[in-house]
């Protein structure tokens, strides 16, 4: 049986964290990665699709709005809807929201400026295929680098996300508290990353791939890719079973409606 995983990294015109994800997967984790060109319609049998950070189409109009219509995105949407593991980082998160694969939207930072620095993140749900290598409540230091990272959604959507344990990462201070001061962009309820109802699509604004190489002195982000590797291996030994040990009871019952219904038009 094949071992390991192959990660497909989509390259939109203007993607600029594609190579960083590539290095995290290959140099950081020792797994395989390949680039998927935006004009392509072939996912090349990858196990995981990553929509990387950057400024696809210059972020003109709205961040992620134009990339969402790339030819490759039809395949990515089918892949994700079919349960394929899909990770959107920063601009990739914006694309996932524009494509309505995740609810909500990302708007300009509260202070209207681009911000780049390490933030404190708390792992809110270690039961997803993206976070199983973390422990619940783990505190991480991961960089952000964005101008439009303020997560917004209707109150009912936010309530639903919380009720279903779909908030995966929150911005927190050094003591692990989700304070307003620890919120770098004004995101609703300090939300830094969320999953869809089925738990196979994660979007987050911080960049785990930038803290995945030991030479840089911080590997807080590497466990995201380690978790994916574990999930891919599990899927291979038990095909069709995407459940992870810590998945909250009841989460799967919400699955059907949430994808279609929860998006906030932006």
């Amino acid at each position: 049986m094949e071992v390991g995983m192959k990660v497909g990294i989509v390259r939109f015109p203007g993607s600029n964290c594609d190579a960083d994800v590539y290095r995290a997967v290959t140099d950081g984790l020792g797994e395989r990665a390949t680039y998927l060109w935006h004009k392509s319609t072939d996912l090349e049998g990858v196990d995981v699709v990553v929509l990387p950070g950057g400024f696809s189409y210059g972020d003109y109009l709205r961040a992620g709005a134009i990339a969402r219509f790339s030819p490759i995105m039809r395949e990515v949407i089918d892949f994700a809807r079919g349960g394929g593991l899909t990770l959107g980082i920063c601009n990739g998160f914006q694309v996932l929201c524009e494509a309505h694969l995740l609810p909500g939207a990302l708007v300009r930072n509260r202070n209207l400026r681009f911000r780049c620095h390490d933030v404190g993140l708390r792992v809110e749900n270690a039961g997803t295929p993206f976070t199983s290598a973390y422990g619940e409540g783990d505190l991480l230091h991961i960089p952000i680098a964005h101008g439009e990272g303020q997560f917004v959604a209707e109150a009912s959507t936010l309530d639903e996300l919380e009720a279903e344990n779909r908030v995966v990462f929150r911005y927190v201070d050094r003591r692990g508290q989700a304070t307003d001061a620890a919120n770098p962009n004004g995101s609703a309820r300090n939300i830094a990353g969320i999953v869809n109802a089925e738990g196979n699509i994660l979007g987050l604004m911080p960049h785990p791939e930038r803290h995945s190489l030991s030479v840089l002195g911080n590997t807080d982000g590497l466990a995201v890719f380690q978790s994916l590797l574990a999930a891919v291996s599990r899927e291979r030994s038990h095909p069709g079973d995407r459940r992870t040990d810590a998945a909250p009871p009841g989460a799967r019952e919400f699955a059907a409606g949430a994808v279609a219904g929860a998006g906030v038009s932006s």
Partner: peptide, 14 residues
Amino acid sequence: DPAGETIRRALGNL
């Protein structure tokens, strides 16, 4: 107007 030009091309692609 880079934004306008990019939107124009994206519309063409659609």
